[in-house]
Amino acid sequence: MERILVRWERCVGCRSCELACRVAHSASGDLFSAVLERPAPSRRIYVEQADKTPSPFLCRQCEDAPCVRSCPTRALAHDETTGLVAYEPARCIGCHGCVMACPFGMIQPDVREGFIAKCDRCKGRDRPACVEACPTHTLVLEKDFLDLRRKEAVRNLVQSGNPV
């Protein structure tokens, strides 16, 4: 599956991705109803003020993931086909080892499906909710990311006054 990449420099800290993530992981799928759900739907993307700039952080779907290694029940496992770190709530005993293990702080305890909340790259959606929600296109899919980077690079080159 295409990874979600972040164009850090574009984030304005609007947190739209966080809200969209929660709504996408709510029972109703609609903002106005989601805010009434109890327990509240959790987010799996985090906008943090890191080093003076706001930036969204989300699970990097590590290949050799500390959370997977910390899991005593293989509730977390690297899925070869999707390339994601997949979470299987039925196997989870809620020991929170992954929460402590993730060096990026991308797993939080949760109480809805299973015992943790972790980016599942929006199961069943073509484009993840956060990518769709991002007004500045900070969050983009891998192909778009590279495409946009190339275009930016070329534009910068042209604007530098030294066209090829």
């Binding site: 609007c14 947190r15 739209s16 809200l19 969209a20 709504v23 903002l31 805010v35 739907p41 007004p135």
Partner: peptide
Amino acid sequence: PQCGFCELGLSCRNCSMGPCRIDPF
């Protein structure tokens, strides 16, 4: 998408200590 905080009325720009938002969740 339009800003969910603003849709919910939870953003405040009344002063320059802000802008502020309340997490609806």
